[in-house]
């Protein structure tokens, strides 16, 4: 009586050894099959799925659009470029020789690239030419304009420029230093704030996407409770039971990312004409930076990863509790 099961057992063992390759192949084909099945189950209820995809898409698109705004603003402001100018207004009555001498000496400073001296007479001539106040100026009995040394600093770093301005103000001949640091600093602060904002919004919305997908997967698990029980009853491993739900999460995430991509590209097309007109008043070669191939891959990858992660969370919290009864 004991002979037959023993032999059937050993034949089972041989099959297991000889068919390792076959098993790997079948594992791959099972993955493929589960992937296709979970996608077609989503497409079978496409309206519901589309809603979920859109919600995920909007949540992903928002931080991306914010980020692109930031990148473009940074690009326009970066164009104000590495050539700031500092004007030193000299004290009235400074001797021209001394002033020229100062301009010359300043050149020796390592933080200054070039200087140019504009005497008060030259300044008046220039002012007369461009302002159209020539007649008014003629009525004055002395030249109200100071001599000026224009400086091109060798740095573009705001904090270094700030130090430089302070040190330049210390020269005896210098009456005042004109350099509009503030708006640059403000812009940089705003850009920095923008970066943080994008990071925070991105984080919160990614968390939202995780919750949306987690909850959707939880419902899917609930719907297929009896199926899960049966699969576990006939010896389905945790990873086997988990697999369809992870693929479901993947498709939700990927579909959401595709929606996000379409939303972002759509907004870019919608915005590009007015933004470029505006920006070209600063810079004539400005073109709105859009989504490149790499950006697109990152968006799709992030979406899919969030989908799988959300599914993993749901699966780890809800699948263990389902046991056959």
């Amino acid at each position: 009586m004991t002979k037959t099961p023993a032999s059937s057992k050993s034949s089972g063992a041989t099959t297991a050894v000889t068919s390792f390759r076959a098993k790997a192949l079948s594992w791959a084909s099972h993955h493929r099959r589960v992937a296709v099945e979970s996608l077609s189950s989503l497409l079978a209820t496409w309206l519901t799925s589309l809603m979920t995809w859109l919600v995920i898409g909007i949540a992903l698109a928002l931080p991306i659009i914010l980020y692109l705004m930031l990148v473009n603003v940074a690009e326009i402001s970066g164009e104000w470029d590495g050539q700031p100018r500092i004007s030193l207004y000299l004290v009235h009555g400074a001797a021209e020789t001394e002033a020229r001498d100062l301009a010359q000496r300043l050149l020796e400073r390592p933080d200054i690239e070039s200087t140019s001296f504009i005497s008060s007479v030259d300044a008046l001539v220039e002012f007369r030419a461009i302002s159209g106040f020539g007649d008014v100026l003629n009525t004055l009995d002395h030249n109200p304009l100071p001599a000026v040394i224009e400086i091109r600093p060798s740095t573009t770093d705001v904090s270094q420029l700030r130090l430089q301005v302070t040190s330049l103000a210390g020269y005896e001949l210098v009456d005042s230093v004109a350099f509009d640091l503030e708006w640059i600093e403000r812009l940089f602060a705003i850009l920095q704030f923008g970066e943080r904002l994008v990071a925070a919004v991105g984080f919160v919305l990614a968390l939202g996407v995780l919750l949306i997908i987690g909850n959707t997967i939880r419902l899917a698990i609930e719907n297929r409770r009896s199926e899960i029980e049966i699969v576990k009853l006939v010896g389905g491993t945790d990873s086997f039971v988990r697999r369809p739900f992870l693929y479901l999460g993947f498709w939700y995430g990927l579909g959401g990312a595709v929606c996000a991509w379409i939303l972002v590209q759509g907004s870019l097309i919608f915005l590009s004409a007015p933004v470029e007109t505006l920006a070209q008043s600063y810079r004539d070669d400005f073109a709105l930076s859009g989504l490149g191939v790499l950006d697109s891959c990152i968006i799709l990858g992030t979406g899919s990863a969030l989908g799988i992660l959300g599914a993993l969370v749901a699966v780890s919290r809800h699948l263990k509790a389902i046991e056959p009864k």
Partner: peptide, 14 residues
């Protein structure tokens, strides 16, 4: 076929 899918049998064997 369910137990065979779980055990990872190949298409033809299933």
């Amino acid at each position: 076929a369910l137990p065979l899918a779980i055990a990872g049998f190949g298409h033809r064997e299933v």
